[in-house]
Design a protein around this nucleic acid. Structure first.
Lengths: 343, 343
DNA sequence: CTGAAAGCGCTTACAG
DNA sequence: CTGAAAGCGCTTACAG
C-alpha cells in the first residue's frame, strides 16, 4: 500500500505539503499541487481514512440506525438519507437492528458509535431519557426521524394529524364502528409511530362517540401477514366493523387479502384505509394517507450536514412534513344497517 | 474521551496489558484481567476503532455494494448478509449506488474501499475484467452475489435454469406466443441477472420454435411502473401474446395492473409469471419462480467470514441455490385460438 | 504474565 | 508557500 510518505518522497516535499495539496487546502503553490496530484495518481495513492480519522478526529462517516431495512418505508428513508450524505462525501455505516432489542441497546447505550462516526441518524425509534442524556453529552450529533426529542433535530409527520384525517374520512362516510390495525405490544424497541397512531385512534373514537370495543383494536405487527391475520380476527367478530383503519399500508394490504379470502367485498362490505402511500398502494387501489418518505430521509440527511457544519442549510430544528389523503377504491359509504325484512 | 492510557494509569499497568486484557487475549492473569475490565467499565472506556485499525491493519468492517437498497430483493439480501456479519462483530458500510454509474466506478475502481474495509460484498453487479484484476491484487477479499467470477467466492441462482423452468411451465400450458418483460438496456451498471435471463428466454424461444417477434421483448426496468408500461405496450400489439414471462415479480405485478386497466383477464386472456416469490406475490396470486433471497445474503456473509478466517465454514466457493416453481393463479392453459365463427 | 518501544498513516499547529 | 515535529490511540513483536 503506498502511503503519503511515498508520495512525499516522490515529489521531494514534506508529507504536510502533500496532505494539504491533496485535500485542496489553500497555501499551496499551483505548481506543487499539480506535481503532488500527478505523483499520487501515478503511484495509485489512496489516503487511509483511519489514519486521517485518528489525526483529525473526524471520521467522514455517519451511522444510520434502522429497526428493519427490509421494510419499504425504512429502505426508502435510508436511500434518501444516504444519497444526501454520499453527495457530501460521507460514508454510511448501517446498523440494522432487525427488530433485535439487544442490538438496540448495544448501539444506543454504549459509546461505540460515538467514537466511530461523526453523527448518528436514528430511524423510527424513540430514545429513552437516559439514552438522550447519554448521547447528548457525547458531542456526537444525533438526528431523529419519526419521533421528536427536544434536544435533537428531527423530522417526522404528525401522527395524530394523520390518524385524525384518516378517521375523519371514514367518519364522513358514515362509519361508526371502525377497527384499528396497528401494533399493540412494543417488544422493547420503543417505536414512536405505532404508539402515537393508536393513541390518536382512541381519542377520536372517544371524541366522536364511535363504537368503543376493545376487540376492535388488533395487532398487525406492521407486516403484510400480520395485517392479514388481524383482518381475519376482525371478520371473526360477532359484530363486524364497517371500516378498518390500518396504521400502515402493508397491514391494510393484509386486510384486503383477508377480505378476499373470506369473500368480503371492499368497499361494499367494509372500507379499508392505510397510511404511507406505499409503492404498492395504487396496485391495490388502496385509499391511504400519503406521507413523503424519501423526502424525510433527505431532510434527516440535511440535518446531519448542518450539525456537522458541512452545509449552511436553513431549516427548522424540528421539521414536520405534510401528509395528504389519497382517496382510491377501498373506502366508501357505510352500508345501511340491515333493515328488518319487512316494513 | 477516555483512552486506553487512562485505563492503564488507573490500574497501574501498561497499555499493552490493558489492550490484551480487554480483547480477551491469553497470557493475562485472571486478576489483572478482572481489574482492567472493571476499571474500563468504571471509566466508561470504549476503544477507538480507528486507532485499532491503524495499528492492526484490520478494520472490523465490511462494505456492501448494492445497486438499489429500495428494491425488495436487495433490501432482503442486505438484511441477510448484515445479520451474519453483525453476529461476528463486523460493521457494515453501505454503498448504495442508487443506480448511479459514477458511484459504481468510484467504489469499484479506486482503492477507496480496500483501505477502509476488510472485505467487500458486491450485489447484483458484474465486475469488469479490469475491476477484477484491480481488486484481486488488493488482498481485500471480494464476494459476489448474483453473478459469478472465477476468482471470487460467489452465491447466486442459475438464471438460465430459472428461465427454462418458467418458460417450460408456460409452454406446457400450450403457450406459443410468449412475451418477455425484463431490462433491455444496461445503463452502464453491468447487471448480470437481466442479461442472463433474457439470453435464456431467447434460447428457449429458438429451441422450441416459439413465436419469435422482437416486439415481444419489452423493457420493464425491473420496477412496478416499468412492468405496467411494458404490459400496456404488449396489449397494444396487433397480435397479443398469450403469456408473459417477467424477469421479476415486481414487473409481473405491473403487468397484472396493466391487464386490469385494460380489462384483460388473468389467466383467461393471458398468463403471467414472474421470478422471486416477492413477499407480495401471494397477495396477487402470482405464479412465480421462488428463489431464496435472505439466504443468498447469509451465504454471502459466510463467504466473507471464511475469507477473513473468522469462521471455519465448509461451503463451496461458488454456491448456486435452488429455485422452485410456485404455481398460483396467474397462469393457465392457453386459450384455443379463436375458431372461425361457423363450422 | 507484563512492559518498553516502535509504528500504523495521517493532520495540525507552529515556525519560518 | 513549505517543513519539522508532535500527536491521534491503539497493537505488536520483542524482551524479560
Amino acid at each position: 500500500m503506498t502511503s503519503i510518505d511515498d508520495v512525499a518522497r516522490e515529489v521531494g516535499m514534506s508529507t504536510a505539503t502533500v496532505s494539504r495539496a491533496l485535500r485542496g487546502l489553500p497555501r499551496v503553490s499551483q505548481d506543487t499541487r499539480d506535481r503532488v496530484i500527478e505523483a499520487a495518481r501515478r503511484l495509485g495513492y489512496v489516503p487511509s481514512p483511519h489514519a486521517a480519522s485518528l489525526a483529525s478526529g473526524r471520521t467522514g462517516t455517519v451511522a444510520i440506525v434502522v429497526p428493519f431495512v427490509t421494510r419499504w418505508f425504512f429502505a426508502m428513508v435510508v436511500d434518501g438519507a444516504e444519497q444526501v450524505l454520499r453527495a457530501q462525501g460521507f460514508d454510511v455505516l448501517l446498523y440494522n437492528l432487525a427488530g433485535d432489542v439487544d442490538t438496540r441497546h448495544r448501539v444506543l447505550q454504549t459509546h461505540v458509535l460515538t467514537k466511530r462516526v461523526d453523527a448518528i441518524l436514528v430511524l423510527g425509534l424513540s430514545p429513552t431519557a437516559a439514552e438522550v442524556d447519554w448521547l447528548t453529552g457525547q458531542a456526537c450529533p444525533v438526528v431523529i426521524l419519526g419521533a421528536e426529542v427536544p434536544q435533537w433535530p428531527s423530522v417526522r409527520i404528525d401522527d395524530g394529524d394523520v390518524s385524525r384525517t384518516a378517521m375523519g374520512h371514514l367518519i364522513g362516510l358514515g362509519h361508526r364502528r371502525i377497527a384499528y390495525v396497528g401494533s399493540l405490544v412494543d417488544e422493547g424497541l420503543d417505536f414512536a409511530t405505532p404508539r402515537a397512531r393508536r393513541r390518536a385512534y382512541r381519542e377520536i373514537v372517544a371524541e366522536h362517540g364511535l363504537d368503543d370495543d376493545i376487540a376492535l383494536e388488533t395487532d398487525g405487527h406492521f407486516t403484510l401477514d400480520g395485517g392479514c391475520e388481524a383482518g381475519h380476527a376482525l371478520l371473526d367478530l360477532p359484530e363486524r366493523p364497517t371500516a378498518v383503519f390500518c396504521a400502515s399500508d402493508e397491514m391494510a394490504i393484509g386486510v384486503l387479502r383477508a377480505s378476499r379470502e373470506r369473500g368480503v367485498r371492499v368497499p361494499e362490505d367494509w372500507s379499508v384505509i392505510g397510511i404511507d402511500d406505499h409503492e404498492m398502494a395504487p396496485y391495490f387501489d388502496l385509499t391511504t394517507m400519503r406521507q413523503p418518505v424519501s423526502e424525510q430521509g433527505a431532510v434527516a440527511g440535511r440535518h446531519i450536514l448542518r450539525c456537522l457544519g458541512v452545509a449552511t442549510i436553513e431549516e427548522p430544528e424540528h421539521v414536520v412534513l405534510r401528509t395528504e389523503l389519497v382517496v382510491r377504491g377501498t373506502t366508501a359509504e357505510a352500508a345501511r344497517p340491515p333493515q328488518p325484512t319487512r316494513g
